[in-house]
């Protein structure tokens, strides 16, 4: 049985669909990422799964529970890290952990937990004296303190510096090695690519693409980009017409896009060789996931905005 099964989930706020017919399932031990821009509906979905918000329709099963009605037994097995920090500033790190540890039947040992999240040296510090990254790690510690099977992380690294982000990435990878199932949300393509087995791209409450980072590349970015520098010059008249059809000039670069790059490259290099043309800075690349993500989200938005304008 999947730890998370969501079928046809919808939720609207005042007539506006925040989540629109979302279905997904997450395997045990898998890290699954919801990727999307601001307002895409990531928090709404996560908080429905955590039991904080009520859904309008659809079915949700988390570890076999319906979060809308489940209480204690369900909460003992999940760990929650909310999008916004929520800590008592007047307590020390150690006291904060101790308070939450008492809620669970089999809490992790405090000192193990503190070294796991890298706060062992700050145990005696007041929460108000911690840096943003340290507070975020303390929050993650509170999500882990009950030794949950399933962990929800809503934008665990937003607002952190690159170093602190890496720390948290390593922590999440480590948790996954312990066999935890993780559902996380993020704005960052590099983050989900580094952490998640599978990714769902969410735009305006709908999943527009889903799969491993590899399959997203295959399906949505299945073309290869060949580019070389031309500077201010135009392409020579001898440039073959079939190639010209798939070429555009972009800020001094000639860019060719092709699903199957081999014959294109063959034609291009054959022409350049025979004409003694210098293919300056020639490169052959796959579009980055970042670009695929931007294409997916922008495409979606302009489609919607176009419709709205009519």
């Amino acid at each position: 049985m999947h730890p998370i099964t969501v079928d046809n989930l919808s939720k609207s706020y005042g007539g506006q669909m925040a989540v629109n017919a979302v279905s997904l399932s997450v395997d045990a031990g898998e890290t699954f990422a919801l990727l999307g821009p601001n307002g895409a509906g990531k928090t709404t979905i996560i908080e429905i799964l955590e039991g904080y918000r009520k859904r309008d329709s659809g079915t949700v099963s988390i570890l076999g529970f319906d979060p809308q009605t489940a209480e204690r037994a369900f909460r003992e097995r999940i760990g929650i890290v909310l999008q916004s920090t929520a800590l008592e500033p007047d307590l020390t790190v150690r006291e904060t952990i101790d308070v939450y540890a008492r809620f669970y039947p089999r809490p992790l040992a405090r000192d193990d937990l503190l070294s796991l999240v890298g706060l062992a040296d700050n145990a005696q510090k007041r929460v108000s004296a911690l840096s943003g990254g340290q507070q975020r790690r303390l929050e993650i510690a509170l999500g882990l303190v009950g030794d949950p099977d399933l962990i929800f992380l809503d934008e665990p690294t937003t607002g952190l510096d690159p170093d602190a982000r890496r720390n948290i990435w390593n922590l999440i990878l480590e948790l996954n090695q312990f066999g935890k199932t993780i559902l996380l949300s993020s704005h960052y393509m590099d983050e989900v690519e580094a952490l998640a087995h599978r990714i769902a791209v969410l735009v305006d409450g709908q999943i527009v693409a889903e799969g491993t980072s590899h399959s997203l590349r295959e399906i949505h970015g299945g073309y290869t980009e060949i580019r070389f520098h031309v500077g201010n010059d135009d392409l020579p008249g001898s440039f073959p017409a079939p190639l010209r059809q798939i070429t555009f000039i972009e800020r001094g670069w000639a860019v060719l896009e092709a699903r199957n790059p081999t014959p294109v490259l063959a034609d291009l290099t054959k022409w350049a060789f025979s004409q003694q043309f210098d293919l300056a800075h020639l490169s052959v690349t796959q579009p980055s996931l970042e670009e695929i993500y931007l294409t997916l989200t922008r495409g979606r938005r302009s489609e919607r905005d176009g419709r709205g304008a009519k």
Binding site: Y52, R75, A86, L87, E88, Y100, G146
Partner: peptide, 15 residues
């Protein structure tokens, strides 16, 4: 505590 989100966090625990 509610403004700070502490109550929400508590509500997410088995307490």
């Amino acid at each position: 505590a509610r403004d700070q989100g502490v109550l929400k966090r508590i509500r997410g625990t088995p307490l």
